[in-house]
């Protein structure tokens, strides 16, 4: 089924988790992260969106950074997950799985579960 790009509000909520997941595969740099996200169907993530997020990860010590000479170009800033970053990723994945399952159940039931449980609780009361 063809799907267009997701609403930007959705992406904003999960972009940090997706970036952490890319970093879990090893040290990487901004352009490569944007490329991996594009390959995963998230569309073109602009530098103005990505680098403030990377700066926040750096400030919160979820990554360490180092500048390396690139194969082409002047150099690259590599990001490597710290132990705190891996813990944040694990925590985020757990939260996301629970949240997406909840949303999935809700959407599949069209809200019936909520209405049903509300009616049940009122009846029993």
């Amino acid at each position: 089924m063809p799907t267009g790009p997701q609403p930007s509000e959705w992406l904003r909520g999960v972009l940090e988790l997706c970036v952490l997941r890319v970093m879990a595969d090893g040290p990487t740099y901004g352009y490569a992260i944007a490329g991996r996200l594009a390959d995963s169907g998230f569309g073109d993530i602009k530098g103005g969106t990505l680098y403030p997020l990377l700066a926040r990860l750096e400030k919160n010590e979820l990554v360490i950074v180092d500048w390396r000479t690139g194969d082409s170009g002047p150099g690259r800033k590599y990001f490597t997950l710290t132990d705190a970053g891996r813990a944040e990723l694990e925590h985020g994945l757990t939260q996301w799985e629970a949240f997406s399952a909840r949303v999935g159940v809700h959407l599949a039931a069209g809200g019936d579960t909520f209405v049903h449980s509300t009616h049940s609780s009122r009846s029993s009361a």
């Binding site: 740099y29 901004g30 352009y31 944007a34 602009k46 530098g47 103005g48 680098y51 500048w67 690139g70 170009g73 002047p74 150099g75 690259r76 800033k77």
Partner: peptide, 17 residues
């Protein structure tokens, strides 16, 4: 440096990226 590195790889001007 982040801006330059990114724009060099994408070929975009900084105003676009």
């Amino acid at each position: 440096g982040e801006v330059e590195g990114h724009c060099t790889e994408t070929g975009e001007p900084p105003s676009a990226a």
